[in-house]
């Protein structure tokens, strides 16, 4: 346990170690041999389109699913065989569920706190997710975003060393998302290791130390947030209008280019754009999508309509 709190990521054993992980459903391969580590205290953003194998991978790490092959260690144990003492060290926030919600927020948290050896204070946890005013309200009567905060509260009530967050802010309004980010930063400061999946790339950029991008069951990028992807994809873009035509140029020295343009008179519609994580990400999964374009989508219970529209976007960006 103390090893899990060490700040030196190089010398301590990783919180998660995955080698050659594969998961097949009949003829379909959902996860096709992936490798990665998560160091103690690190926040990993696991990114990828719906059907990429994210949820399958996470559920294998959480001990919910069995793998077809490969080696997986989570907090030093094989999640396929680990016991209740191991579970007590994990926090899991699943994708939203439809529980009946007959209990109040406080009752539910007090009940779950009993399951853990060293739980957080119930009222402090309710305050941390901003539900003080709803503590005595039945969960069934809360809004979607409020219920999601209860999910997060239940995930952290046991003071986990390792926290899994599966699309935690779906249904949050912008203010609630900002507050949630603050909560996650506090957990990071406490040394919690976090694995986060999200469709919001700004969220991944805000919270993640590292991104792991999965597409078609394979890792297409693994690195620090500002390093993943092709370096050329990060080169700033200068756009301006010249004789009624929109011009665009990629350059490492945008200031120089702008100065040169300005010397000939104020350029019309001038802008300098630094590609966001989203642009880099869409480039990555777009390429992977082209390579396995006819691969059927399955296994990743996400909403398929959103999956389709996202793929449509990617094609627009990459074509």
């Amino acid at each position: 346990m103390p090893g899990g709190r060490l700040q030196d990521m190089n010398t301590s054993t990783p919180s998660i170690r995955v080698r050659g992980l594969r998961k097949e459903y009949g003829a379909h391969t959902a996860v096709d041999g992936i490798d990665f580590d998560v160091a103690p205290g690190e926040t990993l953003a696991l990114l990828g389109p719906n059907g990429a194998g994210k949820s399958t991978t996470i559920e294998i790490l959480e001990g919910y699913r069995r793998r077809t092959s490969g080696d997986v260690q989570v907090l030093g144990e094989d999640p396929g065989h680990a016991g209740l003492a191991w579970r007590a060290r994990l926090g899991i926030v699943l994708q939203s569920t439809g529980e009946s919600g007959a209990f109040t927020v406080r009752e539910q948290l007090a009940q779950f706190a009993r399951y853990y050896p060293n739980p957080r204070d119930v009222d402090e946890t309710i305050a941390a997710v901003g539900l003080e005013a709803k503590a005595k309200t039945r969960i069934g009567k809360l809004s979607g975003g409020q219920r999601r905060r209860v999910d997060v509260a239940l995930g952290i009530i046991g003071r986990p060393e390792l926290l899994f967050l599966d699309e935690p802010t779906t249904g949050f309004d912008p203010e609630a998302r900002r507050e949630f980010w603050g909560l996650i930063r506090r957990l990071k400061h406490e040394g919690t290791t976090i694995v986060l999946t999200t469709h919001y790339l700004d969220e991944a950029a805000q919270l993640g130390d590292r991104a792991l991008v999965i597409a078609g069951g394979r890792v297409v990028a693994d690195g620090a947030m500002d390093e993943i992807g092709d370096p050329s994809a990060r080169v700033p873009i200068v756009r301006w209008r010249e004789a009624g035509v929109l011009r665009e140029e990629r350059t490492e020295r945008p200031g120089e280019l702008v100065a040169r343009l300005a010397a000939a008179g104020e350029p019309a519609a001038l802008e300098v754009v630094r590609p966001s994580l989203e642009d880099v990400y869409l480039g990555l999964v777009g390429e992977a999508g082209k390579q396995s374009a006819d691969q059927p989508e399955a296994g990743d219970g996400g909403t398929s309509t959103r999956g389709r529209s996202r793929r449509a976007e990617q094609q627009e960006v990459t074509s």
Partner: peptide, 18 residues
């Protein structure tokens, strides 16, 4: 059966409850 279907059991399965 309802708890299995609505996610209650999945959530409990992720806790150290025996």
């Amino acid at each position: 059966a309802t708890e299995k279907s609505d996610g209650t059991l999945k959530r409990l399965g992720g806790t150290p409850l025996a």
